[in-house]
Amino acid sequence: MLKTALIADNSMSMRNLLKNLLTDNDYQVVAEASDGSSAVSLYKEKTPDIVILDLTMPIMNGLDALKNILKFDPKAKVVICSSMGQKSFIIDALQIGAKDFIIKPYFNKLIPALNNLFR
């Protein structure tokens, strides 16, 4: 059975790139969000196996969305995928509870990181 995914990124082109990457690697994208608030709502509605979350989004940023998703489901598997690769952002995200942090545009690391979460 395919693993389900939610992609949250304010860039439609980035969501499309990630969606193609995921679907080409046996993941089913069940929802897409362009802001953090929608990501939280869609997570609650769809409860996907994995969330790919950008940090820089309108309405609610990625770290706040991460906190809200984990408050709803402490076992949620959230991977941050952001160009904001400063050490402080990475440390904050991992301390809050992200399972991994992939710095854009190093998408070749994304699928192995996701697959490791299900081993």
Rank of each mutant, 00 (worst) to 15 (best):
K46V: 07
V51N: 07
K44I: 13
I80W: 02
V79W: 02
E45A: 15
K71L: 13
N108H: 03
D73P: 06
I69A: 04
M12K: 07
S82F: 08
K71Y: 06
I91K: 05
L70K: 10
E32K: 03
I111H: 08
D54A: 13
D26I: 02
V40L: 09
I102K: 02
D54Y: 00
S37V: 08
M57Y: 03
V29F: 01
L70G: 14
K99D: 13
T47V: 15
K67E: 15
G62N: 13
K99A: 14
D92L: 05
D26M: 08
K44G: 15
L70Y: 07
S83P: 00
P74Q: 08
M12F: 04
A33W: 01
K44S: 15
D64Q: 10
D35Y: 06
P74M: 05
S88K: 12
L22Q: 06
A8W: 02
A33G: 08
P74S: 14
F72A: 15
Y27W: 13
S34H: 11
V51L: 09
V78Y: 03
D26P: 05
S41W: 00
I69E: 05
I52H: 01
P48A: 11
I111M: 12
D49Q: 10
K104S: 11
V51Q: 05
N20C: 09
F72R: 01
K44P: 04
G62K: 01
Y27I: 12
T56P: 00
N25W: 11
L22G: 06
K77Q: 11
K77P: 01
S82N: 11
F101H: 07
D100K: 00
K109Y: 13
L53P: 03
D49K: 04
S88V: 14
D100S: 10
T47D: 12
L18N: 04
L53Y: 01
K87A: 06
Q86F: 06
A33Q: 06
E32Q: 14
A76P: 07
N16F: 09
S41I: 05
G85M: 07
M60D: 06
I102Y: 06
A39H: 00
E45G: 06
F101L: 08
A39N: 04
K99M: 14
I7L: 08
D26K: 14
I96R: 01
M57H: 05
S82Q: 10
S11W: 00
L42D: 12
K71N: 14
L42I: 10
K77G: 02
S83E: 10
L53E: 02
D24A: 14
A39W: 00
L21G: 03
M14A: 15
A8M: 08
S82D: 13
A98N: 04
I69C: 01
T47F: 05
I90E: 11
G97Y: 02
E45F: 06
N10Y: 07
